[in-house]
């Protein structure tokens, strides 16, 4: 076996393990976590009957979605209606490809010395790739809302497009100030740059802006206006049923995972563990601990997403736009100016 085939096989294994196995399992855990944590916050029990402590509940939910009757209303634009869930799920799964979840190890496989990076693709445009692909996710919502041929769906789709276009700007500005400090768009470089001090300490304002914008970009409360139940029935997915309805939710949870991983990578040191280097552990142990650290940090922000959702009420639409354009955008610009001034001094 040549080195090239070996590298292709390693890449495929990484894609399957990370994108399909790890992301999907995390999605399942998130479904359960959301239901149990919301129950805890509202002083209820939540689903605890299927398996010990309700651990098998997401599987039961999934089975229910698969076996439910598929209803395609007569008045929809059939082709776009079927396409929308695919459009929204694909970018959600693609974005994680450049997030580094660990350093790298060098080992012998089948007689070749290979370096395995714990990252699917180490692109030199790294963070730009995520911004570009994530902005495609909005097409799924708008196409779904339009194809449903229903005024509530269309309103949800239009709201989501306005919201995502507005909050991409402060998000981009927050990213720019991080990139200015690192001098590289590569996410692995951004992590390595934080070995001395995490960006949350060097760029606190950018971190806050980024986290707020991430909530808006993933359509989570307090910014879930595209699916505001009280006003829009269900928003852009009102007319969807069974697995297609579920794929909208899968996309939302997958986007949440990527957003959490990005917050960790940009501002909380990625896979870096302070003082781990001084412990002089074997290389393999060090790598495993770093990957675990990344998973734990990301898990915390996923919990944070759920925590905020069940704590804060929803914004009104004008408040949402005011926050985005009149507060976050000027703050982001100010942050860039300050960062540039400090770096020049």
């Amino acid at each position: 076996m040549s080195v090239e085939t070996l590298n292709v096989i390693i890449a495929l294994v990484k894609i399957i393990l990370v994108v399909y196995v790890a992301m999907m399992v995390t999605d399942l855990i998130l479904i359960l976590a959301e239901r149990r944590i919301s129950a805890f916050i509202q002083d209820r029990l939540g689903p605890n009957r299927v398996g010990p402590q309700g651990i098998l509940q997401p599987l039961a939910d999934g089975l229910k979605f698969l076996l439910k009757e598929e209803v395609i209303p007569n008045h929809v634009d059939r082709f776009l209606y079927l396409l929308a869930p695919a459009i929204i799920l694909t970018p959600a799964l693609m974005t994680f490809a450049v997030v580094p979840f660990g350093d790298q190890i060098t080992t012998y496989i089948a007689g070749h010395l290979v370096t395995i990076r714990f990252q699917i693709a180490d692109l030199d445009v790294g963070i730009l790739y995520i911004v570009a692909i994530a902005s495609l996710g909005v097409y799924g919502l708008v196409v779904g809302g339009y194809a449903s041929n229903n005024k509530y769906s269309l309103l949800g789709g239009l709201r989501s497009s306005a919201q995502m276009i507005s909050y991409e700007l402060p998000m981009g500005l927050a990213i720019i100030s991080v990139v200015m400090m690192t001098g590289s768009l590569r996410l692995q470089d951004i992590v390595v740059d934080q070995f001395g001090m995490w960006n949350i300490i060097r760029q606190p304002l950018a971190a806050i802006i980024f986290i707020v914008a991430a909530f808006a970009e993933t359509n989570r409360l307090p910014f879930d206006l595209p699916e505001a139940e009280q006003e829009l029935v269900g928003g852009y997915h009102t007319e969807y049923s069974s697995m297609k309805f579920a794929s909208f939710f899968l996309a939302e949870y997958t986007n949440m995972i990527t957003a959490s991983a990005l917050i960790v990578t940009l501002f909380f040191g990625g896979w870096h563990v302070p003082f781990l280097h001084q412990a002089n552990l074997p290389v393999l142990w060090e790598q495993i601990i770093q990957i675990l650290a990344f998973v734990i940090k990301t898990g915390f922000f996923l919990f944070f997403f759920i925590w905020v959702r069940w704590t804060l009420p929803r914004f009104r639409y004008d408040q949402l736009m005011n926050l985005g354009w009149k507060a976050l955008l000027p703050l982001g610009l100010l942050n860039i100016v300050i960062t540039a001034a400090v770096m020049a001094l």
């Binding site: 445009v125 570009a132 902005s135 276009i165 991409e168």
Partner: peptide, 12 residues
Amino acid sequence: IVHIAVYAGAIM
């Protein structure tokens, strides 16, 4: 990537 980022927004 810039191609996708710019045109995706424009076409939206």
